[in-house]
């Protein structure tokens, strides 16, 4: 089977889709950094007696269930959404991938130990795990990031390991071993370059999952505290406005969709990725 490693990827120019997606991602990140400075009102400021107000000149994105300015809240929310989900997804995906490769390279004992540990971790009910974390460590953004990362590491591990195990049985990895290359060199030099695509795709998915998980964890008292809220939390707290079509519930949902779709489109269209090699 794939007995030739992939080395020296061709550098293709960014496709228009990648450029567009990248621009949106950058814009979202800019919001996370500068958003609060652009907001007209504080995130917790109750500025209107009119709840679930429609879009208007005074409140361009309407008001929420307490009469707070949604534009300001969404601007603030970017920081809590991206600022938590990105590090958590990087941690989960990074740790999962590294451990997955390690299990594949280091042979059966470590593989079994790591795999069963991850299976145990993923078998722990999320609710109990989260509540224990709150009880033991209290509530903070750091704890939130770590909890989300731990919850999603085993999944990443499983995917990464299954690919890395296939790769480590290939002749080119055997050849590398025969050359006397160390485990780390094999992991980073031979295996990782050959699984970039699935790993990145997995990362993109974890990112989406974590964005959606945040509001649940915050609801359990883990992490983002009022008046602050992430976008998912805003959808949740304003859900009762849905039947009236309030922008307060639709806008943050659209914001999540824009963010997660653009991140994943960017991943799909990175140079050397989605560009097909038909070889015709």
């Amino acid at each position: 089977m794939s007995d030739e490693p992939i080395r020296g990827r061709r550098r293709a120019p960014l496709s228009p889709v990648a450029l567009a997606a990248g621009a949106v991602v950058v814009a979202c990140f800019a919001l996370a950094v500068f958003g609060p400075a652009l907001a007209l009102h504080g995130e917790g400021a109750i500025v209107s007696r009119h709840i679930f107000a429609p879009m208007s000149a005074a409140f361009p994105l309407g008001t929420d269930y307490l009469g707070r300015d949604m534009l300001s809240r969404v601007l603030y929310g970017a920081r809590f959404t991206i600022g938590v989900a990105l590090p958590a997804a990087l941690l989960a995906s990074g740790a999962g991938t590294m451990l997955g490769m390690l299990a594949a390279v280091r042979g059966r004992t470590l593989d079994a130990a790591l795999s069963r540990t991850m299976d145990t971790l993923i078998s722990l009910p999320t609710l109990i795990f989260s509540l224990v974390v709150v009880a033991a460590l209290g509530s903070s953004i750091t704890v939130l990031v770590l909890t989300a990362a731990v919850i999603y590491t085993p999944g990443s591990y499983r995917i990464a390991r299954s690919i890395a195990v296939d790769l480590s049985a290939t002749d080119f990895v055997k050849a590398a071993r025969a050359r006397g290359e160390g485990g780390l060199a094999i992991m980073l030099g031979e295996i990782l370059p050959n699984m970039v695509m699935p790993v990145l795709t997995d990362f993109g998915l974890r990112f989406v999952f974590i964005v959606l998980l945040l509001s649940s964890l915050s609801f359990l008292g883990l992490g983002i505290q009022p008046p602050y809220s992430d976008w998912g939390g805003m959808v949740r707290e304003n859900i009762e406005g849905l039947s009236a079509g309030a922008p307060a519930v639709i806008v943050p949902a659209v914001a999540i969709a824009i963010l997660t779709i653009s991140v994943n489109l960017l991943i799909d269209n990175l140079p050397g990725r989605g560009s097909p090699r038909r070889g015709e």
Partner: peptide, 18 residues
Amino acid sequence: LQDTARKIGFDIQIDRVP
């Protein structure tokens, strides 16, 4: 309460718990 207290410069931190 937090929003009202801010008007007189008083800071209340909210701990929303399970």
